[in-house]
Design a protein around this nucleic acid. Structure first.
Length: 112
DNA sequence: GAGCTGACGCCTG
DNA sequence: CCAGGCGCCAGCT
């Protein structure tokens, strides 16, 4: 085992970091679901935990958490259910399609 | 280590 | 369409 491998082992990517990393990949104009991010982060059933990470994400500007929505396309939170209208307008601004209060996943779901 | 807590997801009535 | 219930998981007491 080389020095590099040892280092890699030491800094093993935590699930949280992996989640943020995947979230950053969501392209402008598209959205991803919590479950989708969970899958990309190698934890298909950890969608719930993903939500927790978004709630307290220390990379506010870097991680586009506003592009992450529920499985049915509804916007669940942003600043503690407080600025949802803003979250919606931000997505509209990026070109995300909406159906009422929900995102039109048919058209705007990010295809990783 | 046990217990509680969600920005979840899926099924049921 | 609208609850209500249950399983899941990481993080924090």
């Amino acid at each position: 085992m080389s020095h590099v491998d040892v280092i890699k082992f030491k800094i093993k990517m935590t699930f949280r970091e992996l989640v943020y990393q995947e979230t950053k990949k969501i392209p402008r104009g598209k959205v991803a679901t919590y479950g989708q991010i969970a899958r990309l982060a190698q934890r298909p059933k950890a969608a719930r935990a993903v939500g927790v990470f978004m709630r307290s994400n220390p990379f506010a500007p870097i991680v586009p958490c506003h592009r992450v929505v529920a499985a049915d396309g509804s916007l669940n939170g942003y600043f503690g259910l407080k600025e949802l209208p803003k979250k919606k307008s931000m997505l509209l601004e990026e070109g995300v399609a909406f159906i009422g209060e929900k995102v039109d996943l048919k058209k705007s779901l990010w295809q990783a």
